[in-house]
Design a binder for these strands. Structure first.
Lengths: 234, 234
DNA sequence: CGATCCTTTGATATGTTTCAAGCTTAGTGG
DNA sequence: CCACTAAGCTTGAAACATATCAAAGGATCG
């Protein structure tokens, strides 16, 4: 179950057993509920099992910026437990199921199995690499490129997580939330999606997105998937 | 020398000795030189000893986005060595000195000393937290807030690194580079800095910034230093 | 079947970019 | 030590992308 964690880096059998044996509790959250709030101390770390979650910050004036989107298999918030306080809110985007694990048992497993510590470090580095790409996306790409880029990312990550099939995937969020991830207003997200449809790059049906022309979408989004480091999963 | 690394997390004497004993080589780079290029494989990781460095990405069209600024004591690019390829460029902002360490010796030290692995993981998580704040900064704050915010961050981090004195610090970058960090044009950075001066928040002399009103600057920049996790250094 | 939340569209306002030119400063060679 | 050059800083005017405001149209769910 929580073994998906192990996919992130090469581990031996013993380590996998150790991960599987971690003391955990399966918890469920309804859409919109918070798993962690900024500034809070929180001894539990979560591994997402089903559904989508997002991490976000609120800036002065009340605007929200989503700083990460999470799919099943992702580790949610080592940060909070390991650094004492969390700097971000973690919220259920859809209804979700997660395995809650006490930091202590993770720490213990880490010191017993160096390969596991190594895997967690890699996981953290990958999520850092994704953050960097987001900075570039939000900082230097126009709305069309930016939107296309996030669609590519969601598509590839969902495919890697076994959630997407033949060019279709679920956009787990409202256009307002998408705007919060892209640093755009919901109105502008709507217009931009419309343009991507008109340009023949995607089709849309509710929140299900069908990719009409993957190559063109990648080009439009300036998307090169290397930063996701998905190969290292093998 | 490279012991600054150890400051990031609580370590015992043995671990500190291990870090100090890491096989390294002191290297120097002139301003503008690249330590790592995107897409490159690179077996060495660097600990910055003197000077400033930045990590950046180039997007389609050639625009640059700086995704991180580094001060002495920072670890530069575990990512590249650990994940195989680097997704970012690492460039000397000023002339700099760094200790180059082979990944192998780090890995070995990590598996021998779990506390060290733990410290590196924390380091990675902190740098992730900083990236998240940057996403929010670039995505949801207007130019004045954004600029004030980065000034606050640079000030606090330099002070923590022992580089800033009584409200003054060195802005290591040109206004163009500052724009690349903020997702703004150099022209607009210039106008924005001017406004901050006119508002009595800072004073400027070449690239030396004097903070005229720290409280007001923090307010203007929506800056709450918690995300830097500098307390955990103690 | 009403209510609420989301999406879509239009008109207007605004912050930031772009283009362009003059101005400083630091560095370099005669 | 001066003149020259290149890099960076500063300022103005106009263009543009995105935000804001407003209202109508669809879904989804008790």
């Amino acid at each position: 179950m929580a073994a998906r964690l192990a996919l992130r880096a090469p581990l031996g059998e013993t380590e996998i057993q150790a991960v599987l044996g971690l003391d955990h509790q399966v918890v469920e959250y309804a859409a919109g509920r918070y798993l962690v709030r900024e500034g809070q101390r929180h001894p539990l770390c979560h591994v997402l099992l089903e559904g989508f979650a997002n991490r976000h910050k609120i800036v002065a004036g009340g605007a929200r910026q989503i700083v990460g989107i999470h799919l099943p298999g992702d580790i949610l918030e080592l940060q909070g437990p390991m650094l004492g306080v969390s700097g971000e809110n973690v919220q259920a985007t859809t209804g979700l199921k997660a395995a809650a694990i006490a930091l202590d048992s993770i720490s213990q497993a880490m010191s017993r199995y160096p390969a596991l510590a190594n895997a967690l470090l890699k996981e953290a580095l990958i999520s850092s690499a994704i953050s960097s790409e987001w900075i570039a996306n939000v900082g230097r790409r126009d709305s069309r490129t930016r939107t296309a880029h996030i669609l590519c990312e969601l598509s590839v990550r969902q495919k890697a997580a076994g959630l997407a099939s033949n060019g279709q995937f679920e956009m787990p969020m409202t256009q307002e939330q998408l705007g919060d991830a892209l640093g755009l207003t919901p109105v502008h997200v709507n217009r931009t999606l419309k343009i991507l449809v008109e340009d023949g790059l995607i089709r849309r049906n509710r929140r299900r997105v069908t990719i009409a022309d993957w190559q063109a979408l990648m080009r439009a989004g300036d998307f090169r998937p290397a930063y996701l480091h998905l190969d290292s999963a093998a």
